[in-house]
Nucleic acid binder design. Structure first.
Lengths: 143, 143
DNA sequence: ATTAAATCGGATATTATAATCTGATTTAAT
DNA sequence: ATTAAATCAGATTATAATATCCGATTTAAT
């Protein structure tokens, strides 16, 4: 077993990328998102609800309700979604599981791994949802 | 929640690094390893047993029994331990959880993430246990 | 032989994540 | 008003990872 992001977070990222790719202001019901992404409706529904609470997603209740991004896709970074769902544990926790891993009391691989981790963090911080629109549509077509 | 390696794997890496740092051919009982690393004895015991089955660790049964590395620390790569415990899922699975993520049908972040992943894999493949002996001893002293 | 201390195998318990279910509430259209 | 279709809140279930427990076996020393 090995995980980068929890399933919640994976699905959350998928859904946000999908909403960004649609490039519309209209809300999309969770059922349609689930169908397009081939993921469980109830589950993605819960995830979108929590992202709504975080302010990344806008939701409209009632008939003709659904979800949309709360802001322009070029204003939402990948790290925003990760932070909202999984938190920043990935970038703070020692990769070897040692307690108090820090520059003062580093674990054996602190430096080497830290470098990679920083790059991953930078990538997630630099990239916004709009950058992936085409690739997302192409991927979803092949699901 | 976010994990790179499972706890099994973290502890397995810790234990192997510790055994390498001791720089001895004598076997060390799991109880002592657990005590030094401040991790559950029963758990690390099981993990070392499975690494014994994998051939990375040598075990001696009975009184005065215990565990040691099965080969010279400079012959054991970090990736060997990861592979034995967690497998290579981390380097094969789509980071966004999309199915069939490949150069043919890449996920939206396939290229950007793939680069980082390759570097992580290289690091784990290049580094052997002996390289971390001093750092390991220093870290364990502060546990 | 007996004892002590260890690995080992298998079962069990605990905890966290993933997924589902149920019912309440909201809202648009008839 | 009524109906239909959606979000939402909370409870429940299923599954996997983590951790512990127990007893059998092995081995060294007395």
């Amino acid at each position: 077993m090995t995980i980068i992001f929890s399933k919640k977070c994976e699905y959350g990222l998928q859904a946000c990328l999908y909403l960004a790719a649609l490039n519309t202001m209209e809300v999309i019901p969770s059922g349609e998102i689930a169908k397009k992404l081939k993921i469980p409706k109830e589950f993605i529904s819960k995830i979108l609800q929590s992202l709504t609470a975080s302010g990344l997603i806008y939701s409209k209740k009632g008939k003709l309700g659904g979800f949309s991004l709360a802001k322009n896709p070029n204003k939402i970074k990948l790290i925003d979604i990760v932070t909202a769902i999984d938190g920043l544990e990935l970038f703070e926790r020692c990769v070897l599981g040692f307690p108090n891993c820090s520059p003062d009391t580093p674990c054996p691989v602190h430096d080497k791994w830290g470098e990679l981790r920083t790059k991953a963090y930078q990538m997630l911080t630099e990239e916004t949802l709009d950058a992936f629109a085409e690739k997302t549509l192409r991927k979803i077509k092949n699901l």
